[in-house]
Design a protein around this nucleic acid. Structure first.
Lengths: 351, 351
DNA sequence: GTGAAAGCGCTAACAT
DNA sequence: ATGTTAGCGCTTTCAC
């Protein structure tokens, strides 16, 4: 399988006058090698451009490694369900490497459940961890424990400003808001815009879409300084209240033609616009490729969706961990801001 | 590396009372095995759900495989340069599998050079071929030769309507034109549109963008039946003539506010619009993420770009071939229509 | 037809 | 600190 030109540890052993065992020791930075031998081996390795044969290596080690993936629960139709596809793909890609991907779920609104998930992940004695952090301080603690054990970890979706993570894969939130504003307005005259927000009852969590909103606002300030920006507060868990809010707003501001929402639930708004019979008069921009969002896009109620491929984030995170643990490859970039996909009813089909 | 629950050929040998050699023979359908032995082995294999250890297999075979990639020449700044990134990525992904990716280039305007490239590819005795076909009948012949030799091949960019290919990765061309029309108009009133086309001097090749244009036209017919559609013919190899054409059109139709181009050279048009000082009055939609197109996007002259990730097509094609030759996996889908990326100046940064 | 055995490149346990 | 050796699961050659 190796090319003719490829060199093996046997060759290195011969050339250095040492044994395979010693060569193996320096290759893995194991202790018990004299400086002299170490250097002799290293020289040959570099000169010959030695590449270990992972098959032989894996074959000889015959051990499984497990990677723990700590994510919010996968609820049908909601955002985190989208990550599953990435896990499936990653699993396929690495299963033949003897890597076992284990999803550890937690309730993103329940701190305790996150703590439990962290413990569960640690209990798996994983070779690496990917985590989507929803709780700041708890994640910090988790990170510290991982570092202590020397377990590499990578963030997806959002990250913490600390220094121990191997990599991060996510969307540039501020920019995504900026983009949303541009797509909503597209250079045409826009006098009023409505933002639909979810009212959160004293959540201690930081609002994950706050930077996105900031980006949106900045764009509007820069390009449409005179545009009036309304906010409609809704509550997904209180449908009547939400309906009432939408009705009231519609009655009061029938002239508003542009609506945007920064979380993943634009489908809720779409439903109300349809109910009020104003769907085709209003330009609607939202986020994330939930099935119900895509449906609203197909129906034409939602004009554009900005999606972030959380599945790719997940699979890339796992790949990075595998490359690191098995192949000793450090990611090319630590912070990986991923592309924002723009979806319309005409390109969604092949998404 | 294999899990505890995995069974090896040694186990099978023991259970059937045969030897590893015989088990290997039935696994590879080699001749010289009695029906009785064959069936005994097959029964155990199926019952135990035996999965061969590819590493051990590859290690024992110790052979390289080569995959030939037959593409138009990589010209700096032009479309096919974009595929290189995919080749590099693919090379990284599979090099440790002992797979050698070999690019074989041809001049997309020269039939003879394509013939030569096919011969060169065949001469490599490849385990698989990926080809971007520009010449219909010649590709047909090439395909026939590959089939004859039992070499699997996959198309990228475009494909032929035959039945021997392993897979196809490409953009839905008709749909992409439809999408372009939607993005150009976006529901606002549009009375006139200009299409910039490249005049081809009696090319015998079929115009690769013909379906895209058809999709565009159909959209306009359906949604803007009264819109007047102009065509400006230009020639990249004759700059003065092109400039004259643009000037003349601008003088004659100063009211046109929407421009589209179906090949990858929207940057040419962008330059002229800038020269004429009308760039910010006109909405411009084009295709493909050439560096100069992205620059025009950043400058704001081009409003939207539809890109097709030819690099991903290339790397996925190679992956499919590797999966097939090494892991014996047939692609899940034969025809893979890939996502059309919509780029604006605000999401291009992370592309 | 079938079996035995050597060996792919590497790891790890055991010697020295 | 270094050498030796027995595998990992499979392929392949050679012998019967």
């Amino acid at each position: 399988m190796q090319k003719k030109n490829s060199i093996t540890i046997k060759d290195i052993a011969r050339q250095t006058g040492l044994s395979k065992g010693t060569v193996d020791r320096v290759l893995h930075n194991r202790e018990g090698v004299s400086k002299k031998s170490y250097e002799k081996v290293m020289r040959v390795i570099e000169e010959a451009g030695y590449q270990p044969n992972i098959y032989a290596s894996l074959l000889a080690q015959h051990k499984d490694i497990v990677i723990a993936v700590v994510l919010p629960e996968c609820v049908k139709g909601e955002f985190w369900e989208l990550a599953e596809a990435g896990l499936v793909r990653a699993r396929e890609n690495v299963s033949h490497l003897g890597v076992d991907i284990r999803r550890v779920s937690y309730d993103q609104y329940d701190l305790e459940s996150f703590r439990a998930a962290c413990d569960k992940a640690l209990a798996l004695d994983p070779a690496g961890v990917v985590v989507a952090p929803m709780f700041k301080t708890e994640t910090m603690l988790f990170a510290a424990r991982l570092q202590e054990k020397g377990i590499p970890y990578v963030y997806i979706d959002s990250k913490l400003e600390e220094d121990g993570y191997l990599a991060y894969f996510g969307m540039p939130m501020y920019k995504s808001g900026y983009l949303a504003a541009d797509l909503l307005t597209q250079g045409y005259a826009v006098d009023e815009v409505a933002i639909v927000r979810i009212r959160r009852d004293q959540q201690r969590q930081s609002d994950p879409t706050i930077n996105r909103r900031a980006g949106f606002m900045d764009y509007m300030m820069e390009h449409y300084p005179d545009c009036k920006i309304h906010t409609i507060f809704v509550r997904p868990d209180a449908p009547e209240e939400t309906a009432a809010a939408m009705d009231a707003f519609g009655a009061e501001h029938p002239e508003v033609r542009h609506v945007v929402m920064f979380n993943s639930r634009i489908y809720l708004t779409a439903a109300h616009l349809e109910r009020l019979g104003v769907a085709d008069k209003i330009r609607v921009v939202g986020f994330d490729n939930l099935a119900s969002n895509l449906a609203a896009l197909q129906r034409g109620t939602v004009n554009l969706l900005i999606a972030q491929h959380i599945d790719e984030q997940a699979s890339m995170a796992i790949q990075a961990l595998v490359d690191y643990s098995i192949f000793k490859k450090v990611p090319a970039h630590r912070d990986n801001y991923m592309h924002m996909d723009i979806l319309t009813r005409y390109n969604v089909e092949y998404y």
